[in-house]
Design a protein around this nucleic acid. Structure first.
Lengths: 147, 147
DNA sequence: TATTGTTATACTCTATAACTATA
DNA sequence: TATAGTTATAGAGTATAACAATA
């Protein structure tokens, strides 16, 4: 079979935000995985490290909710970060049911490297779509999240 | 505890395309699920129905690849559509290993209803971000998929 | 030999119910 | 009685290896 196959047509899918959003997110996450392979960090772990550093001593449930992660799933995520010595749970003094989260020095160091890696992805995206469109895209995606 | 808690800060995540893309995709897919609950169609099933109708008698593997679905996973998807009588696999005459996919009349009818539902989501998105930005967003997401 | 579709399987993500320890 | 975190578990979604039928 040496037929030159015609391209598959996607019809209205090509104009559908939901479909294009899924494809783009897949591509960006695959690119993320390639760049973060050496650091061995998933997107969820990276975002958790950032949120913990930006919000020192806040309750675990608050961080999880802000990231859109269910409580029980965030427990497993924190277990992994703690096992690797990147973050820790301190029993809160004010409310002894609660965990106050913080980065370890090792976690803070790794996060700095991770942010440098993330910046290279952001730069690659800026190269692809342009500075202006990058800013506009962030704004538009934030508004879409309110749907 | 009646303290007015400060908002969690996301730091650089708020400007990160990968993060915002994930949050937006989640929101749009949840909205999709609400709208499509009555039709009992997942985004993957909807996109498969569209692709099958737009590309009659094409091989299963071509459709799957175009949608970014692995072969074995598309088998399960087609099993579901076939069990519900929405699409069928015909053994291809030219190559008897291959399946030529097509919608059943019931599948074509359901797809029309599904497209009307999808159009309401697209309209809701246009209301949220505007007509111009909608067009621009589709273009930008397509380019991001090439990353 | 190579390819199409399939089976079996495993791994990740995500979601929910029920438990514990504190409040 | 209610809340924070946890455990156990189940369901999607996605990935790979190996196989049967056909080329």
């Amino acid at each position: 079979m040496i037929e030159a196959d015609e391209a598959i047509r996607l019809g209205l899918l090509s104009q559908a935000i939901g479909y294009q959003l899924r494809r783009a997110q897949l591509a960006v996450f695959e690119d993320f995985a390639r760049r973060f392979a050496a650091l061995d960090l998933s997107p969820a772990q990276f975002s958790a490290l950032v949120a913990i550093r930006e919000n020192p001593a806040r309750r675990q449930s608050e961080i999880a909710a802000a990231l859109g992660v269910q409580g029980p799933n965030f427990v497993a995520l924190m277990d992994g970060l703690e096992r690797r010595g990147l973050a820790e749970r301190l029993r809160s003094g004010a409310d002894r049911r609660a965990n106050a989260l913080q980065l370890t020095p090792a976690g803070a160091t790794l996060l700095k490297r991770a942010e440098a890696t993330q910046a290279t992805q952001e730069a690659a995206i800026r190269d692809l779509i342009g500075e202006t469109e990058h800013r506009r895209l962030v704004e538009t995606l934030e508004r879409l999240s309110q749907l």
